[in-house]
Write a protein that binds this DNA or RNA. Structure first.
Lengths: 160, 160
DNA sequence: ACAAAACATATCGGAATAGTATGATAAAAG
DNA sequence: CTTTTATCATACTATTCCGATATGTTTTGT
């Protein structure tokens, strides 16, 4: 029941971009350094985000990535489902359970469905903007310069 | 984010026991046959349930297992956590995140915590008795003899 | 004694995870 | 027009986890 690094790092990447005030194309190497993650690994992850249209890229010198939509348009669920494939606790709920022996009778599925709904409710209700707001509120609470770099970079938790 | 077979099969085992009207010690082989699962694999799983005191066993001829407590005393969360170790979506929430670089600052953890709470709310609120009730309600709705064995065995979904 | 069943380990193939490694392509700067 | 920076594209790999099998040993009622 763990979210993989792909899912978590993807959130971290997009949140890092959202918190970057320059609102310019950001080289992935910079994000990797800020977050203390492998740049090459992040390339694989951001490639998926790129193909899905979640980020826009410019190649070559002074290139990089930026979010293609406003932060309120991304939910945690969108990002996680893109990377993880599905967030349902059992396969049965992914593909209509067409191969089940007793379709519709299985009482366990009723429990899994409740769990699945609860998970979806949470991840679909939290937007990237929400997380930005949480971060800004925390920065303010700390006086704005509690961090060694004055809060310019927001190193996130990446230890699963 | 998937529940493993150990967690799901453990639920199936305990639900199978709960639905068995004989209220006697049930040989695991019988459960394996009813549920269409590997008996040897179930032995490993039931061994954990046994050590945790969730089931009681009698060895030897005509031995077997039975639930050691009334069905309302088992929650889905108890069973799943026993088998899976933890249901939290990130490791960070398991051990107080003592090794985090920016403990308490990390804004992603706030999101993971919400998800974790939602998951716990669901699994801790569903008891084995609830699932038994759901099954009995369904049996009644079907007239009691819709199944080929008159509803005596309740084959559950085990396809993840 | 025998058969049925719990109990105890060891082993194992496959898949997923979490990355590295290597290189090709593109574009701006000097 | 070369160099630097960066995206883009695969290939590879080491480790862990999953989902079992396999091979017994021990207990116990008949």
């Amino acid at each position: 029941m763990k979210i993989s690094t792909k899912g978590r790092y993807a959130v971290n990447i997009m949140l890092d971009m959202a918190l970057d005030k320059t609102s310019d194309y950001i080289p992935l190497k910079l994000i990797a350094e800020r977050q203390g993650l492998s740049g090459k690994y992040l390339e694989q992850i951001v490639a998926v985000l790129n193909k899905a249209g979640y980020v826009t890229s410019i190649r070559g010198f002074q290139g990089g990535y930026k979010l293609s939509k406003p932060t309120k348009d991304y939910t945690l669920g969108m990002i996680l489902r893109l990377m993880e494939g599905s967030l349902s606790p059992v396969k049965c709920l992914d593909n209509e359970c067409s191969y089940c022996i007793r379709e519709g009778i299985c009482v366990t599925v009723k429990a899994w469905k409740r769990l699945d709904d609860a998970i979806s409710d949470v991840v679909d209700s939290i937007t990237l903007q929400d997380m930005v707001d949480w971060q800004l509120a925390y920065d303010k609470q700390q006086g704005g310069d509690a961090t060694e770099d004055g809060g310019k970079s927001h190193r996130l938790c990446h230890l699963g």
